[in-house]
Each structure stands twice: as structure tokens, then as C-alpha cells.
Design a protein around this nucleic acid. Structure first.
Length: 371
RNA sequence: UCCGGUGUAGCUCAAUGGUAGAGCAAUUCGCUGUUAACGAAGAGGUUGCAGGUUCGAGUCCUGCCACCGGAG
């Protein structure tokens, strides 16, 4: 059960300022949703995550399915709102994504394409669902709309998602179109199957094809979901992302919350908010932290680099997080070079705080008619 | 002083007398609903020094130097 209130709609853009109420508290939107795939923000405790201004986390049904986890809030000691992703992204990243060694956003041109009828090497996609091979023990494991919803009900997140197929950026139009029919069909089934009061978001797909995006948004948008996820790839440049979101959001019911799945870098956030996105999850702050990258107003700092080993400044002079207050760049560089895991903890903490502060400023910008 | 051993990339070590390699480190790059404290690439050499044997020497021979161990 959620309630979404739009407090203010921008006159300068399609941005909205809102409050998303759940049984576990409110989310001021727009909001970042940090990723806690395995019921943990990697390297941090839930108490530490609370200190990063994080309002809500997203866990993953596929990974937690493997571990037979349930009752997430209690399990991970997270008192605030939670989302759970359906496992649909794993259909891509453990399938064609792995086969072709590509992310969901295509960087290089001239690759092979995926056409209708093709199957990934290590999983099988059928009309009923997907056969996976467990990365833990190789055991075969099936996830379809029913299995995903049942698992997500057991996990008990406040907001859950329909089981979808996130298509590869290499998928051709026919493949994407057929996949979309399946995703729509699964969405309908998820809606029928859900028995709990959890909010269910339907996921819009369609890849880089604008007509398919519009069709998907119309279809999913007309179903009785509590909110909407927008998934898949959006082409390889930011203008395309903005345009796709414009097309999709134009079709979705205005009053319901919209979640953009798996975007973005700091430079993406203003753009997606200006297109009317209310929440968005992204691994970037936490993932890059574990690669030694700190985000700052000047851009990304690669603290692995020797040049920071004598730099006594904090990561970001203007950041008020406890890492920037107490530690210097050269300390973190030292920890990274010494392979001390605390480096990853400090960077994860800072990056989350930094991203959340960035989004907080964006909310203020909407409030003050600057965005 | 004598005897023995070892000297090859920054480090640890490979290389039947036939184009000197690997791992780690260092450097640079990549990462957008996390199989990810990951992955990729380039760079790095007068093989301790000086001679000799040989078509050809990291490898065999001689001398020297350095380090390690043992004896005194």
C-alpha cells in the first residue's frame, strides 16, 4: 500500500516534487534508490546507510531467491522503505549480456544483433518464464511471473516489480517486439497473482525503438499498477534517453509514481528528473566506490592514482559527510593500495551521501523554480 | 682467508646451447534495475661485470664483483 502525492509540478520542465508514502515511512521524491542486491549495500551496515541520507533501498529477487531469504526489513535491519527488483534484469545480464560481454547501454557500434528465436547460452527464455542456472551451485532454477511475485511477497518489500525481460541493446526490432509481448503478458499475470498489499510497479520496455516504447507505455500504463518502472536500454546518448523518457512518461498516468530502472550517473540525474522521473536506482555510487572512484562536483576522482598519495585534502571540500570531515584523499589512496577493505567502505559512504545530497539539491531546485 | 650456493623486469621466480617469459607491483582505460574489493590494455630487460668457446650463450669455460650459508 503506497500513496503518492505530487506537491509541485515544475513549470520549467516535467519535473515533479512529491512524497511517496509507504508503511515504512515516506520518500521525498525525486529520490535515488541505492542498490542492495543481496539485502545489503555492499560494505556498509544498514545503520551506516541511514547516515547517508538514503531514503529507500532496492533488493533483488533473483539473488535472494537463491538464498531463500524472507521478511527483508527485519532480516537486514532496514526500518525504511524497500523495493525489490523482480529478477528481470538477470534475464539480460546473465543471458545475452554475458554472452556478448555488453552492458545494457551499447557503447560500440557494428556489433552482431540478436534476432527473434535466438537464446542465450546459459539460460532459456520461454513464454512461461526463464530457466536460469544458479551461479552458486549450477542448479537449474525457474523464475516466471508467478515465482517472482511469490518470492517478492515473501521478501515483503514495500514496492515490488513485475517480472520482465530486459532486452539487450543488441536485440533487433523483431526480437524486441516479441519480447515486449511477453513482458506485457507477464505484467498482466503479475497483477492478477499478487495477493498482498505491497505496491506493484509494472515495467515498460521497448528498447531503443520509440514506437515500441510508446506502445509499451500505453499498454502498461493502462493496467492497474500502483506505479511504473521504466527499464531496458535507451540508446547510447543522453538526448535519446531524454526523448525516450518523454515518450514514455507522456503515456503513463500523471498521478502515479515513475521509477527509472538502473540509471544514472550524476550527470544523468537532472535530465531524468526533468523528464518526470520520481525515483531511480543505480549501482553507480556503490559500484564505482569499490573500484576506488569518488564522485565530486569536479567529476570522478580515481583515488587509486599515485597523484593522490600526497593529497591531504578531503575527497570534496564542500561535502559534509563524515568521511570528508574526517579523512583525506591520501589516506583513502593508502588504504586502496594496501588493499584494505575500509577504503571501499569510506568511498561507498561518501558516494551515497554525495548522490543523495545532489538529489536533495535537485528537489530544492524544483521547489525554487530552478528546474 | 677457504669451501659451497645464488645473481634474469620494481619484487618473487621461469626459460633440453636456438626469437628472454609468468605472477605480483606500477601505469592507463572501462564499468548505469551488481555473477563485479572486477575486467581490459600497453609499458617494463646490455640476463651482476669483463673476457673466452660456439654459426648461435641467460645457459658452457675463466677472472672479477655483490649477496647468502658453512668452516676458520
Amino acid at each position: 500500500m503506497i500513496e503518492f502525492k505530487i506537491i509541485k509540478s515544475s513549470k520549467k520542465s516535467k519535473a515533479r516534487l512529491g512524497i511517496l508514502k509507504t508503511e515504512n515511512g515516506e520518500i521525498k521524491t525525486p529520490s535515488l534508490v541505492p542498490v542492495a542486491t543481496q539485502a545489503v549495500v555492499k560494505t556498509l551496515t544498514s545503520e551506516e546507510v541511514l547516515e547517508t541520507k538514503t531514503q529507500v533501498l532496492i533488493c533483488n529477487t533473483f539473488h535472494l531467491h537463491l538464498r531463500a531469504v524472507s521478511n527483508l526489513h527485519k532480516f537486514m535491519n532496514w526500518p525504511k522503505p524497500l523495493m525489490s527488483d523482480s529478477g528481470g534484469f538477470q534475464v539480460f545480464c546473465l543471458g545475452f549480456g554475458q554472452d556478448h560481454n555488453v552492458g545494457k547501454i551499447l557503447k560500440s557500434k557494428g556489433n552482431k544483433t540478436i534476432s527473434h528465436g535466438q537464446q542465450p547460452k546459459s539460460l532459456k527464455i520461454t513464454d512461461r518464464g526463464v530457466f536460469f542456472k544458479s551461479p552458486i551451485d549450477g542448479r537449474q532454477l525457474f523464475l516466471g511471473p508467478k515465482e517472482s511475485i511469490r518470492r517478492q511477497e515473501a521478501l515483503g518489500a514495500d514496492i515490488i516489480f513485475t517480472f520482465d525481460e530486459c532486452t539487450s541493446s543488441l536485440a533487433d526490432k523483431e526480437y524486441t517486439e516479441k519480447s515486449l509481448e511477453k513482458t506485457h503478458n507477464w505484467a498482466e499475470q503479475c497483477l492478477q497473482l499478487k495477493k498482498t498489499k505491497q505496491a506493484l510497479y509494472g515495467i515498460v520496455q521497448g528498447g531503443k525503438y520509440e514506437d515500441l516504447r510508446q506502445k509499451s507505455a500505453k499498454t502498461i500504463g493502462s493496467m492497474d499498477f500502483d506505479g511504473f518502472g521504466i527499464g531496458g536500454e535507451f540508446g547510447d546518448d543522453k538526448r535519446k534517453l531524454g526523448k525516450t523518457l518523454a515518450i514514455v512518461n507522456n503515456e503513463l498516468p500523471y498521478q502515479k509514481p515513475r521509477h527509472l530502472l538502473g540509471i544514472g550517473y550524476p550527470e544523468d540525474i537532472k535530465l531524468i528528473v526533468a523528464q518526470g522521473i520520481d525515483t531511480f536506482d543505480c549501482t553507480v555510487p556503490t559500484h564505482y566506490a569499490r573500484r576506488g572512484i569518488a564522485f565530486t562536483p569536479e567529476g570522478r576522482l580515481n583515488l587509486n592514482q599515485m597523484k593522490y598519495s600526497k593529497d591531504k585534502k578531503p575527497i570534496d571540500r564542500d561535502c559534509r559527510c563524515s568521511v570528508c570531515k574526517n579523512y583525506s584523499r591520501n589516506y583513502i589512496t593508502h588504504l586502496l593500495r594496501a588493499k584494505e577493505i575500509t577504503a571501499l567502505r569510506l568511498l561507498t559512504f561518501h558516494n551515497l551521501y554525495y548522490f543523495n545530497t545532489l538529489v536533495e539539491k535537485i528537489r530544492e531546485d524544483i521547489e525554487n523554480d530552478k528546474l
